[in-house]
Protein backbone atom coordinates (compact mmCIF):
# COMPACT_ATOMS: atom_id res chain seq x y z
CA UNK A 1 0.00 0.00 0.00
CA UNK A 2 3.00 2.33 -0.36
CA UNK A 3 2.49 5.79 -1.85
CA UNK A 4 4.41 9.05 -2.20
CA UNK A 5 3.08 10.20 1.15
CA UNK A 6 3.43 6.84 2.76
CA UNK A 7 6.22 4.70 1.37
CA UNK A 8 5.03 1.61 3.25
CA UNK A 9 7.07 -0.59 5.51
CA UNK A 10 7.08 -0.24 9.27
CA UNK A 11 6.73 3.13 10.97
CA UNK A 12 6.99 3.82 14.66
CA UNK A 13 6.36 7.45 15.48
CA UNK A 14 6.96 8.86 18.98
CA UNK A 15 6.19 5.59 20.77
CA UNK A 16 6.15 5.78 24.56
CA UNK A 17 4.96 3.19 27.01
CA UNK A 18 5.27 2.58 30.72
CA UNK A 19 4.42 -0.13 33.22
CA UNK A 20 2.81 1.80 36.02
CA UNK A 21 5.05 4.76 36.72
CA UNK A 22 8.16 3.17 35.24
CA UNK A 23 8.78 4.14 31.63
CA UNK A 24 9.70 1.20 29.37
CA UNK A 25 10.17 3.01 26.07
CA UNK A 26 10.26 6.75 25.50
CA UNK A 27 9.60 8.60 22.28
CA UNK A 28 10.90 5.86 19.99
CA UNK A 29 10.66 6.65 16.29
CA UNK A 30 11.97 4.52 13.47
CA UNK A 31 11.15 3.63 9.91
CA UNK A 32 11.95 0.41 8.10
CA UNK A 33 11.24 0.84 4.41
CA UNK A 34 10.46 -1.93 1.93
CA UNK A 35 13.61 -3.88 1.15
CA UNK A 36 15.35 -2.64 4.27
CA UNK A 37 16.91 -4.71 7.05
CA UNK A 38 16.83 -2.78 10.30
CA UNK A 39 18.74 -4.11 13.28
CA UNK A 40 17.32 -3.01 16.62
CA UNK A 41 20.33 -3.38 18.84
CA UNK A 42 20.05 -3.07 22.58
CA UNK A 43 21.26 -4.76 25.74
CA UNK A 44 18.86 -6.82 27.85
CA UNK A 45 16.17 -4.62 29.33
CA UNK A 46 16.57 -1.93 26.67
CA UNK A 47 12.89 -2.07 25.79
CA UNK A 48 13.05 -4.29 22.68
CA UNK A 49 10.49 -6.79 23.93
CA UNK A 50 8.19 -3.97 25.00
CA UNK A 51 8.34 -2.60 21.46
CA UNK A 52 7.47 -6.08 20.15
CA UNK A 53 4.54 -6.31 22.54
CA UNK A 54 3.32 -2.96 21.25
CA UNK A 55 3.82 -3.95 17.59
CA UNK A 56 1.90 -7.20 18.13
CA UNK A 57 -0.95 -5.54 20.04
CA UNK A 58 -0.34 -7.15 23.37
CA UNK A 59 -0.39 -3.59 24.66
CA UNK A 60 -1.47 -0.27 23.25
CA UNK A 61 1.21 2.43 23.56
CA UNK A 62 0.51 5.32 25.89
CA UNK A 63 1.41 7.64 23.03
CA UNK A 64 2.63 7.47 19.47
CA UNK A 65 1.57 5.73 16.29
CA UNK A 66 2.48 2.43 14.63
CA UNK A 67 1.92 1.91 10.91
CA UNK A 68 2.31 -1.40 9.08
CA UNK A 69 2.45 -0.87 5.33
CA UNK A 70 0.37 2.26 5.85
CA UNK A 71 -2.22 0.68 8.14
CA UNK A 72 -2.52 2.31 11.53
CA UNK A 73 -2.32 -0.45 14.14
CA UNK A 74 -4.68 1.41 16.48
CA UNK A 75 -7.25 2.35 13.82
CA UNK A 76 -7.13 -0.68 11.53
CA UNK A 77 -5.60 -3.46 13.61
CA UNK A 78 -6.74 -6.35 11.44
CA UNK A 79 -5.43 -4.83 8.21
CA UNK A 80 -2.16 -4.01 9.97
CA UNK A 81 -1.77 -7.49 11.45
CA UNK A 82 -2.53 -9.11 8.09
CA UNK A 83 0.69 -7.71 6.60
CA UNK A 84 2.82 -8.52 9.64
CA UNK A 85 4.95 -11.61 10.18
CA UNK A 86 6.34 -12.20 13.67
CA UNK A 87 9.03 -14.44 15.09
CA UNK A 88 8.83 -14.26 18.86
CA UNK A 89 11.75 -14.71 21.19
CA UNK A 90 10.04 -17.65 22.91
CA UNK A 91 8.95 -20.66 20.96
CA UNK A 92 5.34 -20.51 19.87
CA UNK A 93 5.26 -23.90 18.21
CA UNK A 94 2.99 -26.74 19.23
CA UNK A 95 5.57 -29.37 20.12
CA UNK A 96 3.17 -32.29 19.80
CA UNK A 97 2.07 -31.48 16.25
CA UNK A 98 4.01 -32.09 13.07
CA UNK A 99 5.87 -29.37 11.21
CA UNK A 100 3.20 -29.31 8.53
CA UNK A 101 0.31 -29.18 11.05
CA UNK A 102 1.93 -26.22 12.80
CA UNK A 103 2.11 -24.36 9.51
CA UNK A 104 -1.44 -25.24 8.50
CA UNK A 105 -2.75 -24.09 11.88
CA UNK A 106 -1.13 -20.70 11.53
CA UNK A 107 -2.20 -20.43 7.87
CA UNK A 108 -5.80 -21.02 8.99
CA UNK A 109 -5.49 -18.29 11.62
CA UNK A 110 -4.58 -16.05 8.71
CA UNK A 111 -7.66 -17.21 6.80
CA UNK A 112 -5.79 -19.53 4.41
CA UNK A 113 -7.11 -23.09 4.13
CA UNK A 114 -7.34 -26.10 1.87
CA UNK A 115 -5.04 -26.68 -1.09
CA UNK A 116 -3.72 -23.12 -0.94
CA UNK A 117 -2.55 -23.62 2.66
CA UNK A 118 -0.87 -26.88 1.66
CA UNK A 119 0.88 -25.18 -1.25
CA UNK A 120 2.11 -22.34 0.92
CA UNK A 121 3.32 -24.70 3.63
CA UNK A 122 5.31 -26.64 1.04
CA UNK A 123 6.64 -23.39 -0.42
CA UNK A 124 7.95 -21.95 2.87
CA UNK A 125 9.42 -25.28 3.94
CA UNK A 126 11.21 -25.53 0.61
CA UNK A 127 12.46 -21.99 1.03
CA UNK A 128 13.87 -22.76 4.47
CA UNK A 129 15.33 -26.08 3.36
CA UNK A 130 12.99 -28.11 5.56
CA UNK A 131 10.76 -29.81 2.99
CA UNK A 132 11.86 -33.28 4.05
CA UNK A 133 10.88 -32.55 7.67
CA UNK A 134 7.22 -31.73 7.00
CA UNK A 135 5.97 -34.91 8.66
CA UNK A 136 8.21 -34.76 11.74
CA UNK A 137 6.83 -33.91 15.15
CA UNK A 138 8.26 -30.57 16.30
CA UNK A 139 9.42 -32.05 19.61
CA UNK A 140 11.90 -34.16 17.62
CA UNK A 141 13.50 -31.16 15.87
CA UNK A 142 16.69 -29.54 17.08
CA UNK A 143 16.80 -25.89 18.14
CA UNK A 144 18.02 -24.63 14.76
CA UNK A 145 15.25 -26.36 12.85
CA UNK A 146 12.63 -25.13 15.29
CA UNK A 147 13.71 -21.54 14.72
CA UNK A 148 13.67 -22.07 10.97
CA UNK A 149 10.17 -23.43 11.31
CA UNK A 150 9.14 -20.33 13.31
CA UNK A 151 10.51 -18.25 10.46
CA UNK A 152 8.73 -20.37 7.85
CA UNK A 153 5.50 -19.92 9.73
CA UNK A 154 5.94 -16.16 9.93
CA UNK A 155 6.23 -16.10 6.13
CA UNK A 156 3.30 -18.33 5.19
CA UNK A 157 0.83 -15.45 4.71
CA UNK A 158 3.42 -13.50 2.66
CA UNK A 159 3.77 -10.53 5.00
CA UNK A 160 5.23 -7.23 3.90
CA UNK A 161 6.69 -6.49 7.31
CA UNK A 162 8.67 -9.07 9.28
CA UNK A 163 9.68 -8.49 12.89
CA UNK A 164 11.93 -10.89 14.80
CA UNK A 165 12.66 -10.68 18.51
CA UNK A 166 16.11 -12.12 19.21
CA UNK A 167 15.39 -15.06 16.92
CA UNK A 168 18.81 -16.68 17.27
CA UNK A 169 18.89 -17.02 21.05
CA UNK A 170 20.24 -20.43 22.02
CA UNK A 171 21.39 -21.42 18.54
CA UNK A 172 24.84 -22.60 17.52
CA UNK A 173 27.01 -20.42 15.28
CA UNK A 174 26.12 -22.20 12.04
CA UNK A 175 22.37 -22.05 12.64
CA UNK A 176 22.63 -18.39 13.61
CA UNK A 177 24.58 -17.51 10.48
CA UNK A 178 22.10 -19.36 8.28
CA UNK A 179 19.09 -17.56 9.72
CA UNK A 180 20.78 -14.16 9.63
CA UNK A 181 21.69 -14.69 5.97
CA UNK A 182 18.24 -15.91 5.07
CA UNK A 183 16.48 -12.95 6.64
CA UNK A 184 18.84 -10.56 4.86
CA UNK A 185 17.79 -12.27 1.63
CA UNK A 186 14.16 -11.64 2.50
CA UNK A 187 14.92 -7.94 2.91
CA UNK A 188 16.75 -7.95 -0.42
CA UNK A 189 13.59 -9.34 -1.98
CA UNK A 190 11.56 -6.33 -0.78
CA UNK A 191 10.40 -7.16 2.73
CA UNK A 192 10.70 -4.68 5.59
CA UNK A 193 12.62 -6.47 8.33
CA UNK A 194 13.06 -5.40 11.93
CA UNK A 195 15.54 -7.67 13.69
CA UNK A 196 15.95 -7.17 17.44
CA UNK A 197 19.19 -8.45 18.90
CA UNK A 198 21.89 -7.80 21.44
CA UNK A 199 24.51 -9.60 19.30
CA UNK A 200 26.52 -7.18 17.22
CA UNK A 201 27.87 -9.85 14.86
CA UNK A 202 24.39 -10.28 13.39
CA UNK A 203 24.47 -6.75 11.99
CA UNK A 204 25.99 -6.00 8.59
CA UNK A 205 27.44 -2.63 7.60
CA UNK A 206 24.75 -2.03 5.00
CA UNK A 207 21.93 -2.55 7.54
CA UNK A 208 19.95 0.26 9.05
CA UNK A 209 20.87 0.26 12.73
CA UNK A 210 18.86 1.55 15.68
CA UNK A 211 20.58 1.46 19.05
CA UNK A 212 18.09 1.27 21.88
CA UNK A 213 19.10 1.72 25.47
CA UNK A 214 17.01 2.27 28.58
CA UNK A 215 13.94 2.69 26.42
CA UNK A 216 15.38 5.46 24.27
CA UNK A 217 16.93 5.56 20.81
CA UNK A 218 20.60 6.46 21.31
CA UNK A 219 21.49 6.53 17.64
CA UNK A 220 20.27 5.37 14.27
CA UNK A 221 21.60 5.28 10.74
CA UNK A 222 23.59 3.01 8.44
CA UNK A 223 25.47 0.50 10.61
CA UNK A 224 28.75 1.06 8.75
CA UNK A 225 28.51 4.83 9.30
CA UNK A 226 27.67 4.48 13.00
CA UNK A 227 30.55 2.18 13.78
CA UNK A 228 33.10 4.11 11.69
CA UNK A 229 36.51 2.47 12.04
CA UNK A 230 35.69 0.55 15.19
CA UNK A 231 34.15 -2.88 15.42
CA UNK A 232 30.43 -2.56 16.05
CA UNK A 233 30.77 -4.39 19.38
CA UNK A 234 33.20 -1.73 20.67
CA UNK A 235 31.04 1.06 19.35
CA UNK A 236 27.96 -0.49 20.99
CA UNK A 237 29.76 -0.79 24.32
CA UNK A 238 30.97 2.80 24.07
CA UNK A 239 27.41 3.99 23.59
CA UNK A 240 25.77 1.88 26.25
CA UNK A 241 28.42 1.32 28.92
CA UNK A 242 28.74 5.01 30.02
CA UNK A 243 25.00 5.04 30.63
CA UNK A 244 25.36 1.85 32.67
CA UNK A 245 28.14 3.39 34.76
CA UNK A 246 26.15 6.58 35.32
CA UNK A 247 23.11 4.60 36.47
Amino acid sequence: MGSALNPGGLWLQGISHSYGAKPAVQDVSLHVGPGQFCALLGPNGAGKSTLFSLMTRMFVPKSGQILMDGHDLAQRPRAAMAVLGVVFQQSTLDLDLTVRRNLLYFAALQGIAGAEAGRRAAEVLERLGMAERAGEVVRDLNGGHRRRLELARALIHRPKVLILDEPTVGLDAASRAAIVAHVHDLADQGMSVLWATHLTDEVQDRDHLVILHRGKVLDQGRAGDIRGDKPLSACFLDRTAPAERAA
Binding site: T56, R78, V86, Q90
Partner: peptide, 18 residues
Protein backbone atom coordinates in the same frame (compact mmCIF):
# COMPACT_ATOMS: atom_id res chain seq x y z
CA UNK B 1 4.01 -17.36 29.16
CA UNK B 2 5.29 -19.66 26.41
CA UNK B 3 4.15 -17.39 23.61
CA UNK B 4 1.58 -19.40 21.67
CA UNK B 5 -1.22 -17.22 23.03
CA UNK B 6 0.67 -14.24 21.64
CA UNK B 7 0.75 -15.98 18.31
CA UNK B 8 -3.01 -16.49 18.39
CA UNK B 9 -3.48 -12.83 19.19
CA UNK B 10 -1.53 -11.79 16.09
CA UNK B 11 -4.15 -13.31 13.79
CA UNK B 12 -5.92 -10.59 11.80
CA UNK B 13 -9.31 -11.39 13.35
CA UNK B 14 -11.38 -9.82 16.11
CA UNK B 15 -9.80 -10.73 19.41
CA UNK B 16 -13.18 -11.66 20.87
CA UNK B 17 -13.66 -14.25 18.10
CA UNK B 18 -10.23 -15.76 18.75
Amino acid sequence: EMGSMRLLMTAPLPRSVL
